[in-house]
Design a protein around this nucleic acid. Structure first.
Lengths: 181, 181
DNA sequence: GTCTATAATTTGATAGAC
DNA sequence: GTCTATCAAATTATAGAC
C-alpha cells in the first residue's frame, strides 16, 4: 500500500463517515487530494474496491486499538474508543454509518461490515466473560450484542442531534445496567 | 394529499429504508408507479421536499401507532412496533437508516429526523415514569434515550446481519436490564 | 395532472500520452 | 503513477404541449 493509496483511503473514510457510501465520489476525493479522478481509479479500479478497502482498513485499525480483552478495564477501554472517535472528528463509527445503506451497497462491502460487527461482538463476549466469570457463554454473547449495537445506535443518535455527550451518558449507563445481570 | 402523492410517498419510503436518501431517484419511483419522473416532480418539486414529506408522514403514522404512553404495557407495545416493522418488510426504522447520512442530507430532512427521535424519547420518558413512579425525571429521560437509540442500533445491526430475531432478543434483554435500575 | 423533450450536472469508468 | 480527454449513463430539475 503506497502513500497515495493510503491518502485516498483516509479521505474516502472521512467522506463515507460524513455522508455514507453514496455521499462521496472519485472526483471529490481527487479534488481534496489535488490529484485527478483517473489517478484514484489507478489505485482502486472500482468504487466497490475502494469501499471494501476502506472498511477493511478501518476494521484492522480498530482491532489493533482494541488490544487484549482480558486486560483490566477492557470494556471501559472499548467504550473510550467509541467516545473518543465521535468527539475527535465528530463522526460516528463507519459500521453504524453504512449499516443503514446495507440494502444497497456492494456485497463485498456489506460482508466487510458484517465481519467488523462480528469481530466486535466476539471481542466483547470475551471481555464480559473475563469480567463476570459467573455468566454463561450465552449471557456474555447477549451482553456483547446489546453493548455493541446499542453503542452504534447511540453514536448515530448523538451525531444526528449534535450531542456527542449523549454517547458517553448512554455508554456509562449501559455498563451499569449490564453489570447488574 | 391526493392518491398519487400518497403512492409516491409510500414508494419513496420503501426505497429510502432499503438504501438511504441517495439510494433512490425520481425515475426509480416513477418506474415503480408506471408514471413519468416529471409527474413525481409535479407533486414534490425537489428531492428535499419529497424526503421531508416522507419523514413527516412516517413520524405522523408512528406517533399514531404509539398511542397513549400511560396504557398498560406501553413499553412492550413500543417494542412490538419495532420488531413488527422489521419482520414485516425486512426494513429498519426510517430514522435509523437516515441517521447515518445525517451529515449530507438536506437540512429540512435532518430536522424532521431530529423531531422523530425527540418525540420518541419524550413518549418513552412518559412511559417509564408511569411504569416506575419512584424514578426521577432524569432517570426516566436517560432510560428513554438508551431504549430508543439502542433499539435503533439493534435494528440496523439485525438488518445488516440478516438476523431479525436479534432485535427481539436485544429488545427483551434491554427491558429486563432497564427495569433493574 | 400527466406527458415528451431536454437542459445542466455528476457519476463511475476507460483509453492512451507522458 | 499521473495526466488529459472522453464516454455512457444517471441524476435533479424545468418548459411547454395535451
Amino acid at each position: 500500500m503506497n502513500e497515495t493509496a493510503q491518502r485516498i483511503i483516509t479521505s474516502a473514510e472521512a467522506m463515507i463517515r460524513e455522508g455514507g457510501y453514496y455521499g462521496f465520489s472519485f472526483r471529490q476525493i481527487a479534488d481534496e487530494l489535488s490529484i485527478k479522478s483517473a489517478s484514484v481509479h489507478y489505485h482502486f479500479p472500482t468504487k466497490e474496491a475502494l469501499g471494501s478497502a476502506v472498511a477493511e482498513n478501518y476494521t484492522e485499525r480498530f482491532v489493533q486499538q482494541l488490544g487484549d480483552f482480558s486486560d483490566q478495564g477492557a470494556i471501559q477501554h472499548y467504550l473510550g474508543l467509541f467516545t473518543a472517535s465521535l468527539k475527535n472528528d465528530g463522526r460516528a463509527c463507519l459500521c453504524g454509518i453504512l449499516a443503514g445503506e446495507a440494502g444497497k451497497i456492494p456485497e463485498s462491502l456489506r460482508i466487510a461490515l458484517q465481519e467488523f460487527s462480528q469481530k466486535n461482538v466476539t471481542w466483547l463476549q470475551g471481555a464480559f466473560a473475563q469480567l463476570h466469570p459467573q455468566w454463561t457463554a450465552e449471557e456474555c454473547r447477549k451482553a456483547a450484542m446489546i453493548f455493541f449495537s446499542s453503542l452504534e445506535g447511540a453514536m448515530v443518535f448523538a451525531a444526528l442531534n449534535n450531542r456527542p455527550e449523549h454517547l458517553t451518558e448512554i455508554g456509562e449507563s449501559l455498563l451499569q445496567f449490564l453489570s447488574k445481570k
